[in-house]
């Protein structure tokens, strides 16, 4: 069943409650919340409008271009939220995201959905978008942890380096921390999925009229794909940004 614009407006009123409390506790988040809600609405309508045309056109190069642009925007967001240099990091992070999406897209479209056309808009765009969105949060947490801990525990890193560790060995505890912090939430949400949480995609599909059996199968495959792609992207991002962060003597710049 479609939602009318009037109902949508009623739905929007719900945001008054959290906004009131954010204002009451002087969190300074009211403006950000309202801007975020408005941005989300505008962006989604725009995407909806755009997707309709994309579905009709179903052009492989347009879809690929779309994913590249999404990866660029995601890369910019990751860099902004990790206080790294946009000029230095944009290219390696964007490449890492594009490669990770490509690997999982090919796997998902070719082996699971078994589409003849790997770039079929109806699958390629939403799946890539979903994967990229999750990569974004995994990368923000991983990069913040990795480079943050490395800054805070610089002496510990140097101690390892000076006492016989290879650069890889010296960095491995920071990598471990980054992976734990970054993937614990995904693992926790996978473990309780369906029990105490109904995932967005599945709920969306069911609300949109899909058979719950089909929705569940897609959800399982999506969760696995999200997990794999996020991990691949974190490893690739860290690998491709290393030479920008460490000098030739393996010292953090």
């Amino acid at each position: 069943m479609d939602i009318s614009f009037t109902s949508l407006l009623w739905g929007f009123l719900l945001i008054i409650i959290p906004t009131y409390f954010l204002h009451h506790y002087r969190t300074g988040l009211v403006k950000d919340t309202l801007i975020a809600a408005l941005r989300m609405t505008a962006q989604l309508f725009l995407i909806g409008f755009y997707l309709k045309y994309m579905f009709d056109l179903n052009l492989w190069w347009l879809n690929v271009l779309w994913v590249i642009i999404m990866a660029g925007v995601a890369s910019q967001t990751i860099i902004k939220r990790t206080n790294l240099s946009l000029r230095q990091m944009f290219v390696p992070i964007t490449i890492a995201l594009i490669c990770s999406v490509a690997i999982i897209d090919i796997y998902f479209m070719g082996l699971i959905v078994r589409q003849d056309n790997l770039f079929e808009t109806r699958y390629f765009i939403p799946i890539s978008g979903m994967i990229l969105g999750n990569m974004l949060s995994a990368n923000v947490i991983a990069m913040n942890t990795y480079y943050g801990v490395l800054r805070r525990e610089r002496t510990n890193y140097l101690f390892r380096l000076a006492n016989g560790a290879s650069a890889h060995e010296a960095r491995s505890p920071f990598m471990r921390d980054a992976l734990i912090k970054s993937f614990n939430p995904t693992i926790a949400s996978m473990a309780v999925m369906g029990l105490i949480a109904l995932p967005g995609t599945m709920t969306g599909q069911i609300l949109g009229g899909s058979d719950p059996d089909v929705a569940i199968k897609y959800q399982i495959m999506l969760m696995i794909s999200i997990f794999a792609s996020s991990l691949i992207s974190v490893l690739l991002t860290l690998a491709l940004t290393h030479h920008k962060i460490f000098n030739k003597y393996e010292m953090p710049i």
Binding site: T155, L158, F159, A162, S166
Partner: peptide, 30 residues
Amino acid sequence: RQLTSWLPQDISLPYNSVRDMILAPFEFKA
């Protein structure tokens, strides 16, 4: 760096026990 060992002035290593702290550098391949 394979010829050196270094004790910095102030270091807090993330180990729980004395034994782990002593043995940690011996986990490195070299």
